[in-house]
Design a protein around this nucleic acid. Sequence first.
DNA 1: CAAGTCAGTGAACAACTGTTACCACAAGCG
DNA 2: CGCTTGTGGTAACAGTTGTTCACTGACTTG
Lengths: 205, 205
Amino acid sequence: MSHTLGARQVQKQKTRQALLDAALGLLEEQSLSSLGLREVTRAVGVAPTAFYRHFHSTADLGVALVEEALGSLHPMIAGTVSASGDSGERIDRAVSLIARHVREHPAHIRFIARERNGGVQKVRAAIAEQMARFTAEVRTELAGQPESVGWSDDDLLMLAGLYVDQMLMTAGAFLEATPGEVDQVAREATRRMRLISIGRRHWLD
Amino acid sequence: MSHTLGARQVQKQKTRQALLDAALGLLEEQSLSSLGLREVTRAVGVAPTAFYRHFHSTADLGVALVEEALGSLHPMIAGTVSASGDSGERIDRAVSLIARHVREHPAHIRFIARERNGGVQKVRAAIAEQMARFTAEVRTELAGQPESVGWSDDDLLMLAGLYVDQMLMTAGAFLEATPGEVDQVAREATRRMRLISIGRRHWLD
DNA sequence: CAAGTCAGTGAACAACTGTTACCACAAGCG
DNA sequence: CGCTTGTGGTAACAGTTGTTCACTGACTTG
């Protein structure tokens, strides 16, 4: 979509990415509202003023982090819901996909879980918007399944929201779990999803 | 349980409560990890050093806030689950009880929702402990209901956790909702709870 | 190749932070 | 009553913060 950009832009993007990475690292032990601009630049090794070339404020950086963290989740969510097999197999597959994603990108999902109700309004809004997008995607995915005949659009959206929220909570539980607790978290999450699926099957009774 | 304590202790408790109240107010627009000790004392109108007479740090104050905020929730949760009537009536009652509690103590539940995944480890742990206690209470409450015959203890605990998490998420949704959206949030929460209840009814099939 | 653009630098600013040591003075107690 | 206890206040400390201004020098463009 864009022709090869000059060495100038490349270097700029590299610094910008370094700022994002450093911020994500620092946010493992604090919230965005306490993240200082100087703290980030110090971790990267650039002058504090360089920050302004990329972001207006740390809140702005937070919004960029939301895009980065949730952008990579779109394919996963889609793959989770549209998997083949019966209900039980799909749930197992979904839970292990979540576990893998948390293992590979812990800082990203920690950031989302933390700032979803965090102290920075713009970041909360950005996360809510992306989550609504997820929910809508899951809804259309669910709509194509045979179990969904006779469902109203509203009810499908409700079910999708329930699934999405449950996924994020499961991811958060994986994060806090010690290595020894991971299996138990997975089993609990599986049973929760199974109960929801059972509720889905009898919703129209 | 304690005999009337002297005017000394009374004044101390009053200051302590003022610090807690001021902190809760300040935390509506930021997270605990960015809350400064001086900020709190300034809001109360006492010297910064007075803070140390009551708390070691702002993290300590956060733990105290957890007790205050979740202590008042115990009776509500119990009343929610053990209400009389059929499943649908109990759900409606629970949702409106949540709505009322959010309306009356918005700062408390905002604090809990925010710091549940917040940047302060000790506060996260305190919230997790209280939530586990809630879940256990709901479990024993559920165990006494006729719908629970044949359920294993593990499955009851799973269901209780699902309910408790759903309640907190509903409370959080009420918080972010504009006055015009409140009714829609209530309806969505009701439908979610209903689906879970349906899943419960057919769990042993 | 000259001119201009712009990412990053360095110094300075006023304001703020947590923490310390020391003091004042009212309450509690022998 | 005198003595101790302990809440709260004052003053000062070394560091930190966000933001400004003028600057350098490598890249881009005409």
